[in-house]
Amino acid sequence: MTVQDPTGQFTNPMVEVSDLHFAFPQRSIYQGINVLIPRGKITVILGPSGCGKSTLLSFVGGRLRPQKGRVVFDGEPVPTRRGEALFTMRRKMGMLFQSSALLTDLSVFENVAFPLREQTDLPEELIRILVLMKLELVGLRGARDLMPAELSGGMARRVALARAIVLDPEMIMYDEPFVGLDPISMGVIVKLIRELNDALGLTSIVVTHDVHEACGIADYIYLLGDGVVSGHGTTEQMLNSEQPEVRQFMQGLPDGPVRYHYPAEDYLDDLGRAI
């Protein structure tokens, strides 16, 4: 399946994944997927749990190597070996992990300062200003001296977000940003993703299985399922799609192309044998 481009927004995409094949030793993940991430937009990758949505981010970030197909970031193929080339590329991307992944032995301030201290030789005063600016952006300037263990899930995610943008990346990847948050925190994250994208001119990739929130922020949606892209389009296109896979997922129908029952032998036969 190739991506149609009626609006022309896919010329010169930020990320281009083409014909990606990948399998873990026990489990096949992708059988040839094509994804284009347009610049300056929020693209949401939707899909049921365990379909390899988050794994896609590992390919974009160069942490996994495709078995077939290619991944291109900003016009350059993604290198997959540890080393300077890979690290140079990663400096242009930020990533927000599902577990926030704050460094537990550092305070909030030091967590946000971490990329600055590791990547730059900025003077301490400048680091302080940059960190406080980013913390202000996520509304946690007052929490700078707390340790990660003292933060709620939503606050931890906002700190991680501040850390992800402290080096002013061109693209930011959100891995399941809505999981495990209360409605208020969820609203805050949604607002932040939207605002950061518009204010900083970022390209955003959001991986989630939360259809409602996804529709709220997405400019473009990809639906993954069974190792392939089962549908993609703008939010309205997706919501009104007649394609059965898309319809089942977007409307949360229990049965459809994705079966309700785990594959098993005939029910009556099974019962009869037991009796």
């Binding site: 690290f87 990663r90 992990f97 704050l102 537990t104 971490f114 990329p115 080096l167």
Partner: peptide, 12 residues
């Protein structure tokens, strides 16, 4: 808790 992955993604 993905701290090591996060470091890698921060080019550390």
């Amino acid at each position: 808790t993905e701290q090591l992955s996060a470091m890698e993604m921060m080019a550390v």
